[in-house]
Each structure stands twice: as structure tokens, then as C-alpha cells.
Design a protein around this nucleic acid. Sequence first.
DNA 1: GTAAATCTTGACACCGGTGTCAGGTTCAAG
DNA 2: CTTGAACCTGACACCGGTGTCAAGATTTAC
Lengths: 141, 141
Amino acid sequence: MRIGELAKRTAVSERSLRYYEKQGLLVSTRTTGGHRDYNERAVDRVVLIQELFAAGLHSKKIGQILPCMRDTDGAPSEIATPRLVGELVTERDRINGLIADLIRSRDVLNDVIDRAAVVIEIPDSPLAVTAGSHHSAPAAT
Amino acid sequence: MRIGELAKRTAVSERSLRYYEKQGLLVSTRTTGGHRDYNERAVDRVVLIQELFAAGLHSKKIGQILPCMRDTDGAPSEIATPRLVGELVTERDRINGLIADLIRSRDVLNDVIDRAAVVIEIPDSPLAVTAGSHHSAPAAT
DNA sequence: GTAAATCTTGACACCGGTGTCAGGTTCAAG
DNA sequence: CTTGAACCTGACACCGGTGTCAAGATTTAC
């Protein structure tokens, strides 16, 4: 598929996809005219890259991790060096702390939302559009 | 307490504390000479601000949330407007999605770490410094 | 063969919290 | 007093992934 389709399927801008390639995170073959051509696996890879970015990892580190993953790109899946493993452990711990923080923040928001919801709902005005205790939460660990 | 102490106790730079004040997130009385003076509650407030920043909220929105919280600053604790509640719900959902992402990223890292740990540990070289399945994870929800 | 859609590279700019430096003032202890 | 630590305001810069525009080449369909 070409870059436009990949962009649509991953909801990631073409700009970013080209950036990923320049950073060595994403590979593509080229048509005779120089247009990028991606295989089906690219979709999952882009999604993964996005998640790792969202986790606060820098492109350089992501570039080190990707070859160490299984079934990401058919590659024989390298093994992380002890040095890299140490860094990854640090990152993982940082992410765990971040998750804990996010949970706290979410609870703070829920608190404010709930306190407002009560006020809005009780005066029997069916204006309570967004109220209610829909505290959906992703399962953790 | 003065800004230096608050900075130490919260592990937040003086620069940031002044920035928070300029954004209206943090208040302080002033000495005759103009030095900032904080009360004890400031510590918790700063920590909270940091968590909300880590959650990706912008200072403006944090400024709207803070007055709606209970026992944050003795203030009578305002109630969020329906408009704000809507925005907060959006934020909360975004944060929930972010948490889910982070968990996935963490698992990816754990995968890479584990695969390397096996290689390092099995060849009975006690070099396995950071290895082992210490998959500590914060409790969620 | 031609037009419209898609793609190419390159460059400039943004965001927004934070680091840091400069030049000057205030505080607290000797 | 005087001196050193702590604080003040203001300004410049960064980071790094992303938006966007420009000028041109390629693809695809008619």
C-alpha cells in the first residue's frame, strides 16, 4: 500500500510516517518513480511506534527496541544488549510511575465530575447530559 | 515557607513554581520585600499540579479544575460548570486511553527485557544484574 | 495525451513546560 | 554594617514530534 492508505489506516499523518522512516523506525520499498510502498505489517508497526511515543520514549530508543521484538517485521528478532536492557528497565519503571500518576489524575477528574453531576442531576432537570457514574476504566496488569 | 524550601519538598524547580503562579495555579503571599511565602497546603497542590501536567492537561484547564476540588486550598470549593464537566469527561476518557496505551507499551518492554534476561541468565553467568521477573506494576482502578 | 489525485523532498514554525543566565534586591547571621 | 545565601523579574533557548506550505515529479484514469 502507499503512504496515503497507510496514513488512513493508522490515523497517523503522512508527515509523521515520513519522519518515522527518516528516524529508521519504519522501512518501505520504493516504486520506480520513488513513491513509498508498504507491506501489510507496516500497519501494526506504526501503531506500535505510536504507543511507544505515547509512553514517552524517544525515537532513538524506539529504534533500538524494534529489532528486538518478535514478529514485528519478519526480521530474526535480535536480542537486546545488557546495556539496553538496563535502560529498558528504567523506562519500564518510569512508565509504571506514569501509570500510577495517570490513575490518580483520572480519579481527581472523576471527583470533580461526580461532584458536579450530583448538583446537576438532583434538581430533576433532565439536563444531565454527561452525568452519571460511567467510570469506565481499562483493566491494568 | 519560601520558594526554595517548597522546591525541595516537591522536587519541582523554582522556575516551575513561579511559572505555576503566573498561570494562576498557585498562590503565595509576599513578604515586605516581595519574597514569596507559601503555606503548608502548597506542597500538596504542587504535587497535584504536577500529576495533572503529567496527565497531559494544559495549565489553563488545570486552572479551571483546581477551584472545583475539595480541601485544596480552604476555598469553598466551586462546582464545575456543565461545559467544564463535558471537557473533563473528554479528558478522562483520553487519560483512560493513555493508560491502556502505557500498559501495552510496558508489556512490550517487559517482553524485550524477558527475552534478553533468558539469554543472559541461562548461560549461568552471574552477570544477570538487572534480570529477573520483577514485574512490579501499580494497581489500577 | 491530458488532467486530477497522489506522492516527493525541503524548510519553517509551533507548542508549552522547563533550564538557564543576567543584573539587581532582600534576608538573616556575624 | 557587611557579607553570603536566597530571592526577584525578565529574556532567550530548547526539545522533538507534528502541521503546513511550496515547487515539482509520479501515478492513474479518462
